[in-house]
Design a protein around this nucleic acid. Sequence first.
DNA 1: CGCCGGTTTGACATACTTCAAGAGAAGTGG
DNA 2: CCACTTCTCTTGAAGTATGTCAAACCGGCG
Lengths: 244, 244
Amino acid sequence: MNVPLRASVKCSECPIRHRAVCARCDEDELALLEKVKCYRSYQAGEVILWRGEDLEFVASLVKGVASLSKTLEDGRTQMVGLLLPSDFIGRPGRERIDFDVTATTDVTLCCFERRPFERIVHETPNVAKRLMELALDELDSARDWMLLLGRKTAREKIATFIEMLVRRSTVTDFNGVQHDLSLPMTRDQIANYLGLTLETVSRQFNALKKEGIISFSDRRRFEVRDIAALHDATGDDADGGLID
Amino acid sequence: MNVPLRASVKCSECPIRHRAVCARCDEDELALLEKVKCYRSYQAGEVILWRGEDLEFVASLVKGVASLSKTLEDGRTQMVGLLLPSDFIGRPGRERIDFDVTATTDVTLCCFERRPFERIVHETPNVAKRLMELALDELDSARDWMLLLGRKTAREKIATFIEMLVRRSTVTDFNGVQHDLSLPMTRDQIANYLGLTLETVSRQFNALKKEGIISFSDRRRFEVRDIAALHDATGDDADGGLID
DNA sequence: CGCCGGTTTGACATACTTCAAGAGAAGTGG
DNA sequence: CCACTTCTCTTGAAGTATGTCAAACCGGCG
């Protein structure tokens, strides 16, 4: 459990300043948080929190990708959430979590000890409010995921997954040109995310490739060649959830 | 869209007083809510809210069962939530919802107009806090459901579903004796809940019946004969989530 | 009585999994 | 720099759980 502490960035220069739990804070409130925060890093594959473990800290994800997952007795596992920068780990008023949190890529967290943080939540409506928004956003995406898991075909699942990657990455740097995107996880992890096997994931990726909808420059980096066809393959309706 | 208004029960005598959004309110706060509340009833099958529709009210479910569902272009549908008494419909700060809400059985709601309610939330930390708890509970059960949808077999899904019914109903009246339970929905609705077809649901019910794990007194009423075997069939581990 | 929605049951189809083998990359140590 | 291992990914062949289609059943109700 290698958890090197790293120097923190100043809040005012933090890349997730405007989206994380602190998004609505004014300067004074930010100073309050700044006093108790500390950075931690994890390598890809490291477990950040075990299911059932006592939560000693809560955190904002600053950099990288982490996943929430649940496992059945016999080892079948299902990811139940994907955390991207600005997402929050841990909940006010909860001492435990019922899933494992794992670093999918190298990850940097902005951590707060749970107790002091809860006091701040209690006294800072702007933090409490933002926390509520984040929880509701997660609920929305959990429900989209339920539709995918329960009703979509393998092909639709893969297409939806790719479309989500495109959307969540071009949000950050969009200037007309489509860059290569990279899969933040292995086929196996994608399978656990989509409720499939890794073989099916592989076959569906290659099917979309053969149809010219996507192309790979290497096993992890790809490009979308035909975004309309990709969308058609998702099974969603025309404007599906694009009401940002 | 038949929405007869019904006389409200006094909050102090309300059956969901201690679990709903008002659970943490004191007498004064309750009076505030009492002033703006009103009851509405819906018949089984009626749509309470359409996806995308403007939310004019939010509500607590007082009596009955309602469901949240999402539908793909070609008609495949997936339930993404089941609302039981004390569950909340609608979210502060959200003007729309991205799923349909339908009355599964006859339903009674305790409604609040959205705007006045949001003002109350803003000024009443006890309501805001409870709303947060309810959202987090929903998030937890959404994640359990994702594991079920993504990784469980038809048999495990049915067993899990029955176990949930047992748990949520004996919570209310537990006195050692196990009464008949009734399925609050049709096979078709159960199928949409579990990500199956109605035929598979029917077959799995009958399989469990043949094995003596459950028995039916009629198509809707059943009894659990072997609760240990039922639990084994869920695929969950021994103490699975029973940390109430 | 006859219809009707919900349900059961059977026969068949198939999407996905499972099992197995091999191909590429990527790292390790000599 | 080259074996050697290891890990991830691909591809094929075969198996199976679940879906699809169709018919019959059942209880309730006009």
